[in-house]
Design a protein around this nucleic acid. Structure first.
Lengths: 122, 122
DNA sequence: CGCTGCTATCTTGCTTTGCAAGGTAGACGT
DNA sequence: ACGTCTACCTTGCAAAGCAAGATAGCAGCG
């Protein structure tokens, strides 16, 4: 499971990415994230995040009826949100580059196979 | 610059990775991180992190003289630290997979030209 | 009708962690 | 003596994920 600390800062960009093409509502987003492989992201995480984005002006909300429950609050990206998403992509890749470079300079990935067993430690 | 929130949880694993092959001291680590592309990671971040790892038993410390200043506190990975490093690698790749899949399922990375257009002068 | 369960939203309070700001101190040059 | 670089540490703040719980609509069952 991905540790919660490692999700900080990343989740927000991911939610922006989810909203990039179509409107979605919070409950749906929470389920989407699990499908994408983030593990269970509880509602106590998703809803405050969405409210934060809404207050900041990154997304806008509109209530619409649901066929099977209470109203849904659909969110859509604003221009600001689109820009923040682009910046998220940039930052995320910058972090990736740094981590990859660090790993490479310090001996590469452990490879998890018999590599280490063959050498017995270095 | 990489936002500080996005470093959370990642920095710790990166410091473990830096210590994987050779002992290093805090001041050095702080400078290394900048070289690897993480931006300036201030000492108010690095030292508490190292003390945390030491208390937890992930690393051990030993003072040694410096040719050009006060004593240096060199840190080395323990077995526990090695295990945590391996787990960090696993978690980091799991997060990467999730983000990459999410990005792909929502339309892929924006094209480089759009990137440049959106953030031409920064 | 009450009960259970799914859908759907929000809030409170806790915890972790990066960081700004500041403090201490050794070594060295001017 | 003073400034600067090296090198360590601490205090207190802010951001964000999350557990736990509150609220409420809707549907089926006994």
């Amino acid at each position: 499971m991905i540790p919660s600390q490692m999700l900080k800062g990343t989740l927000e960009g991911c939610v922006l990415a989810i909203l990039r093409q179509e409107e979605r509502y919070g409950y749906e987003i929470s389920q989407n994230l699990e499908c994408y492989g983030f593990g269970r992201i509880p509602e106590g995480t998703v809803y405050p995040l969405l409210l934060r984005l809404e207050k900041r002006g990154s997304i806008t909300a509109s209530f619409r009826a649901s066929p099977e429950g209470p109203q849904r609050k659909y969110y859509a990206l604003t221009d600001l949100g689109q820009k923040e998403l682009t910046e998220f992509f940039r930052n995320y890749r910058e972090l990736n580059r740094a981590v990859e470079q660090l790993i490479e300079m310090t001996g590469g990935y452990p490879h998890a196979q018999e590599d280490e067993a063959a050498f017995g430690g270095e």
